[in-house]
Amino acid sequence: MTSVLSTIDKPLTETGGNRQVSWIGLIDPRIRILCAATFAVAVVACNDFLALSAAVVVAFGLLSVSRLPAMQTLKRVATMDSFIIFILLLLPFTVPGTQMFTLWGFPASWEGLWQAIEIALKANAIVLALMALVGTMEPVTLGHALHSLKVPAGLVHLLMFTVRYIDVLREEYLRLRQAMKARGFRPSTGWHTYRSFGYLVGMMLVRSMERSERILGAMKCRGFTGHIPLLDRMRFRPADALFAAGFCALLLGLAALEVTHGAI
């Protein structure tokens, strides 16, 4: 299930079992979500180089204990949107300040370079921590955890349905692509290609609609009344409290580094 979403081969059970490969996976999912969120807010608030480097180290630490495939994950994180990389590369030339060097008559400033580095450090630290803490969860568990964190039921159900059908529809897409290939379709730049891709998306839309009608029919047949029960088997254990406390201590350490080092 959800192989598109899985960043690791997890021993999944279709009902949303919560067996994980590392000890981080045993921590209460709600605690992991809250930790990732506080980490993100704390890191965004930091401006000091040392504090941000420490945050990146923390994120790498989380990545290594989460047992996500490191190379694969780092590659994913590194392939940021090309437009973000482009903006970061432009920053040294658009921020005024002490001149570093001149490229084709455009002066590059140290301040701009520092701002670009700061954004890159923040973005990577937060995304790595997010993937290590929350991305290791089974998507269904994420839904249940969000529900017990008081996210509206409608949104959680929408999330669950999306998670459930991403793989199904991806297979549908691959089947359609294979059928196109069998008929000699080779993508290139041109009206024919764009029209064919448009028809492909349109066909997926039609089939999805029909599929959802069948799903609703099947659900109604089993007594669906507009309410889906959410399993709520999460327990807050001493180990979770310990993890939360440890994580808070780390964040306080970051804050202390920011305050003491940044002030000098």
Binding site: G154, H157, Y165, S212, L216, I228
Partner: peptide
């Protein structure tokens, strides 16, 4: 988005994810 329409919206959300 009434509960009745969640399956349609969810499947379409997955469609746009795949797209």
């Amino acid at each position: 988005l009434p509960m009745e329409k969640i399956p349609v919206a969810g499947v379409l959300s997955a469609t746009f994810f795949v797209a």
